[in-house]
Design a protein around this nucleic acid. Structure first.
Length: 430
RNA sequence: UCCGGCGUAGCUCAAUUGGCAGAGCGGGUGGCUGUUAACCACUAGGUUGUAGGUUCAAGUCCUACCGCCGGAGCCA
């Protein structure tokens, strides 16, 4: 007897196969049962009529409950009445475990309840589609950099000090002294770029901010490239090529999942290079024109970002923010020292910032001054300053937030469904 | 931390002016040979978040607390 997965049943048409999986749902019409079976690769309808199966198998069809694990044997047949176009004409049904009272029923539930049962919620077809898209996005990220001469360099998770003084860090005891969970691998990537030229890291990032919004997680995944001998223009070019590549890959390889999520793919198909580029000053002008009350010199808030990106169908790159609102390692614009050579990429459709990056300060004396100005401990940054002591070069990079990217591409309003087990201010379980 | 909202059956929600706590789903029993979150009949299921207060009477009004939601700030 041949084993098969639901994703490739078309290949087995007319043949007898065995499927291993779980019961997704079932319906009956007296002496005829319809079993929706899922196996992780898809869902297929099994049909069992009393005339064609043994008494015990028909009894099993009656008894089997939602999410019971099972092994079912039958013939694959094309049938227009079946969801998916193929169905399994059941010959034998074996129940591996009969489930009692599966908590998630085929009706509506609130997100709090579903999040409490996240370990089971993952089995629902919508969550399966999101996780498959997430995996393809991550694979596209890796492929893009691997194919363009970048070297993957892993950054540490434990760090001795803040990369950016502003954000709150998760503190942990490290053999009696303080250590923090990383909030960015960037500083380490700068070191790696001086060793290997073009590098990137991909790993979890931790922010202890008490943010309770649909865009925030306390633990999220970030992809951070860093390139030696690259300036801000090169950085922006890299960012737009990168994002366009990811979107193309998802449209190519995950169209079924996008369809299942009812994602409007027409807006994704428009995401080609080049992306619109605005200076901070130009972006402020847009806000002023739309009558938004905004004080020049501040960073943009969430609603400001939405208003700016509303006017475009592609991601918008905003560059040269006031240096005062940006991190210490940003290089100042030599043509206007009050500005930083930085760029934020705002995704369309109100998702907000998915990339933040820029050109790094490469001058030793200037960097020392900036560390002092931001009141950061100079001692902790000696190794970082070494990169400017020994063969300093212009370099740039950025960080892409994976969950915000997934939420944009999937068209999800909240990032909590874009990661298997989200960590938020009020969510540490399951 | 601040602002706003919500806590009623396992789940999603009703309950008029303060006046007998209810429905759908899920569970159980029975029926139905092409169902599409199937349907039909019957059935079990409740300390209305917690503590106090007002009242003849509180799910409903008042006070405090707890929990959650998402917006601000901050950020990807």
């Amino acid at each position: 007897m041949e084993k098969a997965t639901i994703s490739e049943v078309a290949r087995h048409e007319g043949k007898e196969v065995t499927l291993n999986g779980w019961l997704y749902n079932k319906r009956s019409s007296g002496k005829l049962w319809f079993l929706l079976i899922r196996d992780g690769t898809g869902i297929i309808q099994g049909v069992a009529s009393k005339e064609d199966v043994s008494e015990s198998t028909f009894q099993h069809c009656m008894d089997v409950t939602q999410e019971s694990s099972l092994s079912v044997t039958g013939i694959i047949a094309e049938d227009k009445r079946a969801p998916g176009g193929y169905e399994l004409q059941v010959k034998e049904l074996r129940i591996l475990q009969l489930v009692e009272d599966y908590p998630i029923t085929p009706k509506e539930h609130g997100t709090a309840f579903l999040m409490d049962h996240r370990h089971l919620w993952l089995r629902s077809s919508r969550q399966v589609a999101i996780l498959r898209i997430r995996q393809e996005i991550i694979r596209a990220c890796r492929d893009f950099f691997d194919q363009n001469g970048f070297v993957l360099v892993d950054a540490p998770i434990f760090t001795p000090a803040a990369c950016e003084g502003t954000t709150t860090l998760f503190e942990t005891d490290y053999f009696g002294s303080q250590a923090y969970l990383t909030q960015s691998g960037q500083l380490y990537m700068e070191a790696a770029a001086m060793a290997l030229g073009k590098v990137y890291c991909f790993g979890p990032t931790f922010r202890a901010e008490k943010s309770k919004t649909r865009r925030h997680l306390t633990e999220f995944w970030m992809l951070e490239p860093e390139v030696a001998f690259m300036d801000l223009d090169g950085d922006m070019e890299l960012a737009e090529n990168f994002i366009a590549y990811i979107v193309q890959r998802i449209l190519q390889n995950r169209s079924e999942e996008l369809k299942q999520l009812e994602r409007d793919t027409a807006s994704l198909e428009k995401i080609g290079t080049p992306f619109p580029r605005l200076t901070y000053d130009e972006a402020v002008q847009i806000l002023k024109k739309k009558g938004i009350n905004f004080e020049y010199g501040n960073d943009f808030g969430g609603t400001d970002e939405t208003v700016i990106s509303e006017g475009f169908q592609k991601p918008v790159m905003i560059h040269r923010y006031p240096a005062a609102v940006k991190a210490f390692y940003m290089k100042n614009d030599p043509e206007d020292l009050s500005k930083a050579l930085c760029v934020d990429v705002l995704a369309p459709e109100g998702v907000g910032e998915i990339i933040g990056g820029g050109q790094r300060e490469d001058d030793y004396d200037t960097l020392v001054e900036k560390i002092k100005k931001h009141q950061l401990p100079l001692k902790a940054f000696q190794w970082y300053l070494d990169l400017r002591r020994y063969g300093t070069v212009p370099h740039a990079g950025f960080g892409l937030g994976i969950e915000r990217t997934v939420s944009w591409i999937c068209g999800l309003p909240h990032v909590r469904e874009t990661i298997p087990f989200p960590r938020m201010m009020h969510r540490l379980t399951p």
